[in-house]
Simulated scan of single mutants.
Amino acid sequence: MPHPRTRLDDNFASPIRFSILASLGEGIELDFVTLREILQCGDSPLSKSISHLQSAGYVLARKAALGTRQRTWVRSTREGREAFAGHLDALREIVALGGAAPP
């Protein structure tokens, strides 16, 4: 049986990309400013991370006017949530293997 690390998704290798999906559960849509504040990161790294996840099909970003200002809203896709859940399962299995006695 292959080691669970082979199921880790490289799209979550960046702490910001990992944190974006962790913040966007099913039915949650956050605007860019709120997401930036939650993740405590700069505009450029957040923007690049959203673009990466959007290219992977893991998030959808839409622009909408809020008053006179344009805002970007981000939400996860089903594919993104499933990929993130699989990544978390693999991490849990890796941790469990670390505490297991050798055969």
Rank of each mutant, 00 (worst) to 15 (best):
R69M: 11
V95P: 05
L97I: 02
R92F: 12
P45C: 01
S47C: 06
R7K: 13
S51W: 15
A22H: 11
F18N: 06
S19L: 13
E37T: 08
I94N: 02
V74A: 00
V59E: 06
R71L: 11
D9H: 15
S23T: 02
L46Q: 00
G67R: 08
V33Q: 01
V59I: 02
M1T: 14
P45I: 02
H3P: 01
F84D: 01
P103K: 15
P2Q: 14
T34R: 09
D31N: 15
A90C: 07
R92V: 07
R78C: 08
E82D: 13
V33G: 04
S44P: 00
R7E: 14
I94M: 15
Q70W: 13
E26C: 01
D9F: 15
S55L: 12
A56M: 14
L46W: 08
L46R: 03
R92G: 09
A90I: 12
R5V: 14
S19H: 13
D9L: 04
Q70M: 12
E82L: 14
I50P: 01
Q70A: 10
L97F: 09
A90D: 00
T77S: 04
R71D: 07
G99D: 11
V33H: 01
T34H: 12
L66G: 08
S49T: 03
E29L: 04
V59C: 06
A101F: 15
R71V: 07
G27D: 00
A100G: 05
I50N: 07
F12S: 04
P15Q: 04
R62G: 09
G86S: 11
E37Q: 12
V59K: 08
R92A: 14
S47Y: 08
P4Y: 02
S47T: 05
Q70V: 06
M1S: 13
G67P: 11
I50H: 03
G42M: 00
L91P: 03
G99I: 07
E37D: 11
A101P: 07
Q70L: 15
S47I: 00
D10M: 11
S19K: 15
R71P: 04
M1R: 13
I28S: 07
R17Q: 11
A22G: 10
S23F: 11
F32L: 02
I28H: 06
C41W: 08
D43N: 09
T34W: 09
F18M: 07
N11S: 11
P15V: 04
M1Q: 11
V74F: 06
G57K: 10
I50W: 09
P2R: 14
G27W: 13
N11Q: 10
G67D: 02
S47W: 09
L88D: 07
S49D: 08
S44A: 08
E29M: 06
R75L: 08
T6Q: 14
S47A: 07
G57L: 11
R92M: 10
S51Q: 09
R71I: 03
I28Q: 01
R81V: 03
L8R: 12
V95I: 08
T68S: 10
P4G: 03
T34C: 09
V59A: 04
L21A: 07
D9T: 05
G25L: 03
F18P: 06
A101G: 05
P102V: 03
L91H: 11
A96V: 00
R7C: 09
S14G: 04
V74P: 02
P2W: 15
T34A: 13
L60T: 14
S49E: 05
L30I: 05
